[in-house]
Design a protein around this nucleic acid. Structure first.
Lengths: 212, 212
DNA sequence: GAGTATAACTTGACAACGTTAAGATCTGCG
DNA sequence: CGCAGATCTTAACGTTGTCAAGTTATACTC
């Protein structure tokens, strides 16, 4: 919080190495991508020796996890900020746009956060699986609280994975360049995102035709 | 295609190293995850020296790309197979289920395919960005061809990124364990997937209330 | 305020990795 | 048969994650 905390005065022992490492890791990943993220490089950038990080993190993975946790805070903030002045269905749209904006503003970081190794979920300490929770919990709360007409309770439930997948998938496909607004007749990225989200919400607001 | 091609007879020079490397890479990634994918390890598993792969691939990245291309074929097959007996909207559901089934059957491979490094899209040879095209082209074709009532042409267009994001996001969130069917009252994974897809398609089939 | 325990950091080393250069060996063509 | 070229091996370089051992600054006690 507060200033950008270079280092307090000149207390040797570096003062706040832990935070500095996380900050430089984020700086590095945003500048040169996920592939450039090496522990030694981060240490070098921070001005300490290669083994210094081990005083604060048991392994590289733990540093990365800390980076993800930091990213999660920004992510949650982005969603909150984007939705705060809105209400009802519009609030949901705000959350979605906040989500996607974050992904577009911090593509590599977002990518890292969505890429905690598939097989790691099992042996994790229990902290990693909740990495996205702050933002998604807002979404879940909003989906449950927002009165969507014509839906039974179990139908409301299904809206959660539906909306979640939608916004998560769109974020990833956009930052990987697999979906481009131009393909669908939009010159403006923001306008495209708004249109897709609007369309999704409008679809979801319809009463279901009970065909089955 | 055809047999599992161990090696033809005993022609030394290994005969078909290229294919063997790709096959063993896939075998390795499915057995031990993305993190275990090292070039030396693949070579060792294949019974050749560490530098042998360089006769067939300029770099590790190119081997990985070949693996992704191979995966893409399976991916397309899975979608086709899952949709072939269906028609109309049901065909779309089949494609989606085929997509998700592939992701669930080959989580690490799918993860690798969806994770071509963010920053690499730019400098790529032009082949990588099309990695998913086979499957998605089927989906796009089906979305365009399937008669969805009450939609204008530009509204049909928007269905493409909408459906794509939906199924892509759901696949990823499922294999990373972030969405679990139990949370939403489903004990069966397959049933959950069908329910979500059905719900999505039903939503998308509604006429839009022209609120704007 | 001197002395010490402890946390924070450095140095040096190890195995594994991607990649390259140089040489060996097999294959197929004349 | 002999040669050209593709294919593979061996050896090496620099880089990485990690650990063991030693060093240095901080904090606490008397």
């Amino acid at each position: 919080m507060s200033a950008n905390g270079e280092q307090h005065g000149s207390r040797y022992h570096h003062g706040n190495l832990r935070e500095a490492l996380i900050a430089n890791a984020i700086k590095l990943i945003e500048a040169e991508g996920v592939a450039a993220l090496s522990l030694r490089r981060i240490a070098r950038d921070t001005g300490v020796s290669q083994a210094a990080p081990y005083s604060h993190f048991p392994s590289k993975k733990d540093l990365i996890t800390a980076v993800c946790i930091e990213g999660t805070k920004w992510f949650g903030e982005s969603m909150r900020r984007s939705a705060e002045d809105r209400h009802g269905v519009d609030y949901l749209a705000g959350l979605a746009i906040g989500h996607i904006n974050f992904a577009l503003a911090h593509p590599a970081l977002f990518h890292l956060m969505s890429t905690r190794d598939v097989s790691e979920a099992a042996d994790a300490t229990g902290k990693v699986p909740e990495i996205f929770d702050e933002g998604y919990q807002m979404m879940v709360a909003a989906l449950v609280r927002t009165p969507l007409p014509h839906f039974g309770i179990e139908q409301q439930q299904l809206n959660i994975p539906l909306a979640w997948s939608q916004v998560y998938g769109l974020s990833n496909l956009l930052i990987e360049g697999r979906i481009t607004p131009q393909t669908y007749g939009f010159s403006d990225l923001e306008a495209f995102v708004v249109a897709v989200i609007d369309r999704f919400l409008q679809n979801s607001l319809q009463p279901l035709s009970d065909s089955k």
